[in-house]
Design a protein around this nucleic acid. Structure first.
Lengths: 210, 210
DNA sequence: ACCTGAACACCGTTCAAGT
DNA sequence: ACCTGAACACCGTTCAAGT
């Protein structure tokens, strides 16, 4: 049974598909409740190839994790964009920029709650310290730029004070990332259901100070 | 040479000293530039005992790491207290509470910069998720209470708005922890020298919103 | 009571080989 | 070009034994 499955699968890895299959398997692995850690050997087992085959497509485990993280940043960006798009507000609403920042914060923390293992890899030490993976840097930058353009908009309408943009973005990101991190290690105890009201209160002082 | 050293040391582990020696060795290990990871085997090697001896004092690797983390929370608390004690201000200074919160933020991030590996263990996943280690919870709580009493003081003088205290503390903690984390994984690039001015700008909006 | 030795089931990675 | 097998140097942990 298992052998047949592996054989069938393997036939499709002759056209550069293995690379994607490995990344998908790795994401599946950490998305399932029971398994938290990505190992090179477990991922290749799931795909049905010898673990050495991975090295044909990724120079090491860290490279594979970087691909997973890159995909994660893409998902995060989509989540944030979706949160803005579905915001009920129209124009002329008072404090629109503040409400948009709030929606971003809620969506950000929600993402970390929904994909904890993925989030941890994205912000883990392995691939972030050196700028080894340009595609990863690019994906992270896009999320950064989304935050920046929102803050820009708030400053443009005069709703936010005109402070150095970089510090505003990093401040907001630090706040949401810090909250998500503390919640994931359960230093802050919080059920998924209460993310929305809680985040609102947490970011309250920050947004009020913009 | 190495054998003599190990022998000499070992003679003192008959009175419950091994436990402390292991924790100290683990902290030494992560404090030295070259080594980032604590392994049970490396720690026991440094102390000069068989790696199995560790299990006499710690039920597993995680327990040893929890002891390291607990010590870290103690150091962090001392760092924060010291920052408040050496703050040049006297009474009657305007915005005293804000300046004290700022000093705490700077000291907090500075600690993470100075002891990165230690900080990572303190906020790592291994021992925080379940409340397995009451001593660790207690040490973390003391740091929490320091922040809370500062915010209380600010509210008492009317300098800060009277919001739910828990949200204020978690907000401040999220902000400083998030900034420290992002800096440690180099998503925020920052030299140790610039921690002070940078943190001041980052926490600016938050403190202004208190 | 406290420590050790050998063994087990895992890792990531290297070298040399198979098709 | 793409994948495999055997081997290496590491892990944490268990079992049974030494003093």
């Amino acid at each position: 049974m298992a052998a047949t499955k592996a054989r069938k699968r393997r036939s499709s890895y002759h056209h550069g598909d293995l690379s994607n299959a490995l990344v998908r398997a790795a994401i599946d692995l950490i998305s399932s409740e029971n398994s938290e850690q990505i190992t090179l050997r477990e991922v290749s087992r799931r795909v049905g190839v010898n673990h050495r085959a991975v090295y044909r497509h990724f120079s090491d485990l860290t490279s594979l994790l970087a691909a997973v993280a890159e995909q994660g940043y893409g998902e995060l960006l989509a989540t944030l964009q979706h949160a803005l798009a579905t915001l009920p507000a129209g124009k002329g609403v008072p404090k629109l920029a503040a409400r948009r920042m709030e929606a971003l914060a809620i969506a950000y923390v929600g993402f970390a709650f929904d994909r904890p293992a993925h989030y941890r890899i994205m912000f883990g030490r392995r691939m972030n310290e050196d700028g080894r993976f340009p595609a990863l840097e690019g994906a992270a930058l896009k999320a950064y730029e989304l935050l920046q353009s929102e803050l820009d908009a708030g400053v443009a309408t005069g709703e936010f004070k005109d402070r150095p943009r970089r510090e505003l973005v990093f401040g907001f990101w630090s706040l949401t990332h810090g909250f998500a991190s503390l919640a994931l290690v359960r230093r802050i105890k919080l059920k998924r259901t209460f993310v929305e009201p809680y985040v609102r209160q947490i970011v309250g002082p920050f947004i009020a100070g913009l």
